[in-house]
Simulated scan of single mutants.
Amino acid sequence: MKVKKLLTLTATAILSLTLVACSTDNKSEEEKTSSSDKVITVGATANPHAEILNSAVKPLLEKEGYTLNVKVFNDYVLPNKALSEKSLDANFYQHIPYLEEYNKKNNDNLAYTVKVHLEPMGVYSEKVKSISELKDGAIVAVPNDPTNESRALKLLAKEGLIKVNDKEILTAKDITENKKNIEVKEMGAEQLPTTLKDVDLAVINSNYALQAKLNPTKDSIAIESKDSPYSNIIAVREDDKDSEKIKALDKAMTSPEVKKFIEEKYDGAIIPSF
């Protein structure tokens, strides 16, 4: 009888330990889930996107109990791939036409929530002080992704350097008039500031211009108008649009504090879209 009783007590003890262990593991998983729900990971290009996130948005989210983790990217392709692969909760670096073109080419369905700011694209040169000074056969560098190349060519057409087809997406093949016989050189957007010494003109996105210490409103010889449709957005996965984390991020991104930061920090080079 004593042996049977001892075995019963041992079995009860083992069962209790097992239940405690399972309870601890479950609690640990719940705690991990709860903890991850309070961390928002956003991919961004360095300047101004990561700067806005770290300087102006992070403190606002901390007040709401969230930790903002900013991952910096140096190109325009990887942040969308990382978002699709769920290593990011959102990204902040692109405009709507770029996102739509990315979705079409990659059979993806990334969405956007809020418009944050406009970065006017500018024309820069170390060789001439105005577009009219360009010589015959000049080399003009433009971004090589479809939407930003289209923006660049439309800006050059607006300045009277070329004429282009009336369509949304343009390449150099859509130039219909080129009186100065310019050579259009398509390059990665991030490379354009470094090519200024080698080309006659470069049409550069404001984020990369700022990164290269170029002020779009002071250093460019031509710039997009303020009514440009290319506002930068918060991009997310479609099924996360209404999550609590994204709602908190959107609220912070479009707050009066962020608007004031953009206006004061960039002095008109970047314009709030809210």
Score class of each variant (00 low, 15 high):
S34N: 12
L99D: 15
N144K: 11
S16G: 15
T176E: 08
N106P: 09
K2Y: 09
V116K: 05
F274P: 06
K63A: 06
V77Y: 14
L192F: 10
T194H: 10
I262H: 07
K38W: 00
V203L: 10
D145L: 12
D136A: 01
S23Y: 12
I271F: 11
M1A: 13
P193Y: 07
I169E: 13
P216D: 01
V203S: 03
E168V: 13
K154E: 04
L201T: 07
S23G: 14
Y102E: 10
I14Q: 05
T33V: 15
M187T: 12
A13C: 15
N144Y: 04
H117C: 12
E31Y: 12
M187S: 14
I182W: 02
K104Q: 15
I182F: 05
K105N: 14
I221Y: 06
I40E: 01
I271G: 09
I262M: 11
V123N: 10
S132W: 01
D242F: 03
I204T: 01
S255G: 04
L201P: 09
I270Q: 08
S130A: 11
D75M: 09
V114C: 08
K27W: 12
S206R: 01
S23V: 04
A21Y: 13
D250G: 10
F261H: 09
H95Q: 06
V140D: 03
L110S: 07
S35M: 07
G137R: 01
N205M: 13
I169L: 15
L210G: 01
A152T: 03
P229R: 05
L134E: 00
N165C: 06
K2Q: 11
D219W: 08
T10P: 04
E257I: 03
Y266T: 05
I204S: 02
L19M: 15
M253N: 06
D267R: 11
L60W: 00
T254A: 05
K4W: 10
N106I: 08
K115V: 05
K115A: 11
D108I: 02
V236Q: 03
L134D: 00
V164S: 08
S28E: 06
E30R: 10
I162P: 11
V39A: 01
V42P: 06
R151C: 04
L249C: 11
Y230F: 15
V3A: 11
S130C: 06
L68R: 03
T24I: 15
E263C: 04
T41D: 05
A21W: 13
S34I: 02
G160F: 05
D240I: 11
T33K: 15
T254P: 04
E168Q: 15
I223H: 09
S228W: 03
I169G: 11
K226C: 02
T176V: 15
D242E: 14
K2L: 12
N103Q: 12
G160H: 08
A209K: 01
